[in-house]
Amino acid sequence: MATVTADNRGLRLATRYAVLILIAIIFIFPLLFMVMSSLKPSAQLLADTKSLRAFLPVGDLSFDNYTDAFVRAPIGLFVFNSVLVTGITVLFCIFVCSLAAFAFVFIDWGGKTIIFSILLATLIIPYETIFIPLLLMASQLPWIGAEGFEIGWLNSYRVQIVPFIADALSIFLFVQFFKDLPKELIEASRVEGASWWTIYRKVVMPLSGPVIATAAILKFLFMYNQYLWPLMVVQEEGIRPVMVGLGYFTDQLNVPWGEVMAYLTVITVPVLAFYLALQRVFIASVASTGVK
């Protein structure tokens, strides 16, 4: 009897791992293709796509594509711009959205249900529909900068950051998480004499690691992948982000695919680094929502 159960368990474990490995392969292959292709000359790269060789480090391998790509486009600058814009947006987003969610969940005020519903309704509005009005608005917004008072936010870091700080999805994530925190913790803090600000800082946020990680990763990916908006609002090369930088390679008759792959490999590094840094907390959050 015992051996039967042991066998069953072994079989189940094997099946589970087989499925997991299969899924891992499906997710790894595009990355593998990208990295391998970045090491091959364009002609070989295209020829290899007809077979599994596309995923293997075979043939004439070199780092030429990387050197060429760095000559063609100021990659370092683009990565710096993207990381700067994304990083600042993520930080402000976590702060602003968690504060908004805190007010929705813990503080009683008139009309909060209606306002929250309106906020959620904005989730179904596609960005494409508001890009043009947003662009017009951004072109007329005032700003006090180094040269004094000016009109128009175009061609700046702030036009890439400010419109994306607050969003309904992040607020929603925080609201859902806050609702599951025991409300006695908040009440106990109030009885102890804590202000709302203290409760936010000392009680709620220290317990919100998982949702902070989730919101941060989602925001990071969204911001890092921004293409259409920066394409419209930024003309200056100096503040251009990575995705727009891709245009340096694709606006010609013969696309240098090797260089494109090298470029993509380089700009993927910050995303992987960010994800790995938050991975443990992120998995904890997915796991905990699964259990509930």
């Binding site: 006695e184 009440e187 106990a188 009885v191 804590a194």
Partner: peptide, 17 residues
């Protein structure tokens, strides 16, 4: 406010941080 009433409260769920 609760903090100004001179009370302390012990909750059923303990409510410790």
């Amino acid at each position: 406010e609760p903090k100004n009433r001179g009370i302390a409260m012990v909750f059923q769920t303990y409510a410790i941080f």
